[in-house]
Write a protein that binds this DNA or RNA. Structure first.
Length: 208
DNA sequence: ACTACGATCTACT
DNA sequence: GTAGATCGTAGTG
């Protein structure tokens, strides 16, 4: 009998990175946006595993949130009305992709935009053009570039391989909040959240 | 078919 | 601080 081949670095490590449950995402977008801070985005690629800690998010919710793509029901936004825990990837400003995870129970529109990560594994597999390394995923467009996320991930399940959100341990840092970036309306809603003082934030949070 | 614009990033002043 | 790159989506004709 031949020896077992070595475990591939792909699925075998799912014990180390445990996906969050779908129920985690089936809540109010603002609750999910805050709760995601400190958890991990994991991507098992052919070139190796990429892992980043989520340090900044934004909540988008409901049909009456004018800043949200779900303020109108269109082919693109349909995914925000579906089941939670699914990737919503859209193309922005003609050159970037942004990654969201859908929220709220099935049938209610919502999503959380992942705006910044601290890359903690697989830095050598990410693009090296951005320096310092702490800024590699500091912004929604940089995040998708660093994590090799593209339109092919739109509609995929973020609770399963190869791209998923995993438990990241107990969060230590305090959470800060502010108005969402690039949104003219609803500036009074402070639905942008971040880990206080983290170097990978896309932009600083203003003090009250 | 044609137009306007954006949940951005980089480079430059 | 502000401009330019660049194109899918959605609204209008």
């Amino acid at each position: 009998m031949a020896a077992l081949p070595p475990r591939r670095a792909g699925g075998g490590e799912m014990t180390r990175y445990r996906p969050l449950s779908r129920r985690f995402f089936a809540r109010h977008s603002v609750v999910v946006a805050r709760a995601l801070l400190g958890h991990l985005l994991v991507h098992e690629t052919a070139g190796g595993r990429l892992v980043g800690r989520i340090v900044e998010t934004e909540a988008y919710r409901g049909s009456r949130d004018p800043a949200s793509h779900a303020s109108r029901q269109t082919p693109r936004s349909a995914i925000m009305f579906g089941r939670p825990g699914i990737a919503y990837v859209y193309f922005s400003y003609g050159m970037h992709h942004c990654l969201n995870v859908t929220t709220e129970p099935d049938g209610r529109p919502g999503a959380v935009l992942l705006r910044a990560l601290e890359i903690i594994e697989g830095v050598e597999g990410t693009r090296h053009s951005t320096s310092p390394v702490t800024r590699l995923a500091a912004g929604p467009g940089r995040l998708t570039a660093a994590m090799r996320v593209g339109p092919e991930h739109n509609g995929t399940d973020l609770t399963a391989l190869p791209l998923f959100i995993a438990y990241g341990g107990r969060r230590r840092a305090a959470i800060v909040a502010g108005p969402r970036i690039g949104i003219s309306a609803t500036a009074s809603r402070r639905w942008r959240f971040g880990l206080a003082g983290h170097p990978a934030l896309s932009r600083p949070f203003r003090r009250l």
